[in-house]
Design a protein around this nucleic acid. Sequence first.
DNA 1: TTATCATTCAAAGATTTTATTGAATGAAAT
DNA 2: ATTTCATTCAATAAAATCTTTGAATGATAA
Lengths: 230, 230
Amino acid sequence: MNTREFKSSLYKQLALVTKSLSNHHRLEILDLLAQGSFSVEYIAEHANMSVANASQHLQVLKKSGLVDTTRDGKYIYYQLFDERVLETWRALRQLGLSQNHEINMLLEDYQKRKDQLYLINSDQLLQKIQSNEVYLIDVRPKEEYNLGHIKNADSLPHNQLKERLQELPTDREIVAYCRGPLCLMADEAVNLLNKKGFNAYRLDSGFDDWLAENKPVEKREMNTLTKNKE
Amino acid sequence: MNTREFKSSLYKQLALVTKSLSNHHRLEILDLLAQGSFSVEYIAEHANMSVANASQHLQVLKKSGLVDTTRDGKYIYYQLFDERVLETWRALRQLGLSQNHEINMLLEDYQKRKDQLYLINSDQLLQKIQSNEVYLIDVRPKEEYNLGHIKNADSLPHNQLKERLQELPTDREIVAYCRGPLCLMADEAVNLLNKKGFNAYRLDSGFDDWLAENKPVEKREMNTLTKNKE
DNA sequence: TTATCATTCAAAGATTTTATTGAATGAAAT
DNA sequence: ATTTCATTCAATAAAATCTTTGAATGATAA
């Protein structure tokens, strides 16, 4: 094997990793796995795929070393291989968000209001939490809340919001947060709440960023994602 | 458009970026562009492709926002869009290197010697440069050296090494460096030099990492890559 | 041991991606 | 105005990726 062939093999190997990132379903899966570990069934349902298809995509991710599995009872749980995968995914997602005009258009479109974005960043939120100025709700599915959530947040899954409005305070700001910047559940929640007369904002990032920024969380060890291999 | 369709569009847009990273030729191009801006012709030659093929791959990268072009005379120069692309590429490359056993096997194979790796890291190198203990050679093509190089390095392109051995000192360590960790020219140089009786090491990373670490360089402004748009 | 059921596999057709070829463009230089 | 030539385009065939379907696996729980 000459130098040229060696070089080509190297980049082909590297491309195994990037190829596994090149499919939109797999990106959605990764974004979900940034929240914790889940069974194939859960992933298929929450990323809107058939179980067989999800299984195949998960195997691609596993073969490239981005995710790993553990079995518990009759379920196989998939998780990100380690923190570096989370870090790299966040960098990539951030790059895509900043570079791609279309995405920003889509997000703005979705939020419908260009002028008042009702956004709050993580530092502002942290401050308000500490001075007890906000009521913080986690609109992700309960399962994900249970795996870990922002300190002092209450779980109020997006699909139960309408029926549980009376649990919310009217005398304080409400902040809703979600998985990450691409997660739309928080947008919908904030939209609804403001329509109903509440004073609501959304966290501009999400739980995975919060975690990566080492801000206070509950119930989830920071090293949940750490592989303790061998 | 409902939420599900929105979500799907978002990830599809993001996948435009990751898809453009999913081809081994394009990875090699990115790795080259981490050194500076080059014409289509130069890129085609140094990444071992036909010009038409390189042009098409470059257009994919451009459409996804990862690279940009400027014209100078009759050449069109492609460059990374901004520092964030370089950062993200380095993170991705690092992840691939650490995750992929095959790549490490290939690199070890290439270096042929598992026990003595003749590697030196950038901090060690910097120290030795400052105390004048090493003779540092840049084995990349002269064009790339001219765009910028490690302070105090001399240019000795890989393909001229054999004929110019007499220029090298025998009383000092020699350190060779190259584009990045995947660049094999430094390995070959170190191999040859040690065979010829010199005391040679290679920098374990490369010029792009050196630059990203803000270590001293010559001739290239740190913001060569900065887009000054509009 | 047997039944259950979450997950994976295998095959096939549809879609997308890729390399090659030769021609077309169009900016710069003469 | 014309020529040059770096780059891009367009068409095609080959290769790879993706989704669906229904069946197979194989670990767990009974």
